[in-house]
Amino acid sequence: MVLSQEVNVIPKVVPPEITRAQGLELYQDMVLGRTFEDMCAQMYYQGRMFGFVHLYNGQEAVATGCIKALKAGDYVTSTYRDHVHALSQGVPARAIMAELFGKATGCSKGRGGSMHLFSAEHNFLGGYAFVAEGIPVATGAAYSAKYRGTDQVSVNFFGDGATNNGAFFESLNMAALWKLPILYVVENNLWSIGMQHARASSVTEIYKKALAFDIPGYLVDGMDVLAVRRAAVTAIERARAGEGPTLLECTTYRFRGHSLADPDELRDPAEKDLWRKQDPIPKLARYLVEHQLATQDELQTIEDDTQTLIEDAVQFAQDSPEPPVDEITRYVHAEDE
């Protein structure tokens, strides 16, 4: 019986636990996610982006900490809050921004939109717009890796709300049963739109749900990219060794409303302030400077370069053509190329 483990059970390491190159990569990736999302908000309010747009601000440490610990060829499956998972997995900002603009150059050729980003090239298996919908799909990718005899690992992100859904229990049961190479990463941001986690789940400590399947469950500080990375590395090693799935509960917070259409009036401003103080990006910046892995100037350069990259993505999206309406039926069937 593997007991559920608190964060302090994951081996502590003497800092600095990362190299300078790793530190800069993590920082750059989180800044990329934040800058991209901030730009999305601007574009949405300017009427250049449409539909429901769910931003990831505040949760960057989870995507970065997990995905940057993966190897090329590993799978990532996301939710409707998928922009930053796609970015971390290597999908170019241009392709995502163009998709959000509904353009032909978008990563889903203008047919998917914010909640349906895909990239076969990057083994990004998609944004899934129903809560918990991606969990079985990610489980299938893990089964497929086992079936085909590869060492690929599947990482599946979803929110606290999904852990009250049957697909979560069904999938974890099967993954544990067949020792599938998968990480179930819960981004517990405490709120399912307006439903407080404690009002929705009889057991609020999600990592404890791992007990039901006799798999490791970790409680991780999802505002600390190094803590997430540490847990992810442990879980990825286990998955790749054929020992089965791991449940990671990353406690985090979204700094914006559920979507850009959400007035976000329900959450207590004091709660928001408390979490904003734990912003994972300045936290990593302090760590890098403190451990002399980077200078403030270098970090500023990363931020500036990222801003330029995102502006370029917007320009690219803006300049890209709309998909031809006479191709509206293209891709419905596999026969359409």
Partner: peptide, 25 residues
């Protein structure tokens, strides 16, 4: 492995089949 007895979990084994089908199986 090729003739897989699943638990009684239609939603998720169908979704699992989707994930398999997207990745070469």
């Amino acid at each position: 492995l090729r003739v897989l007895d699943t638990p009684i979990a239609e939603n998720s084994f169908a979704g699992m089949a989707v994930g398999c089908a997207m990745t070469g199986v």
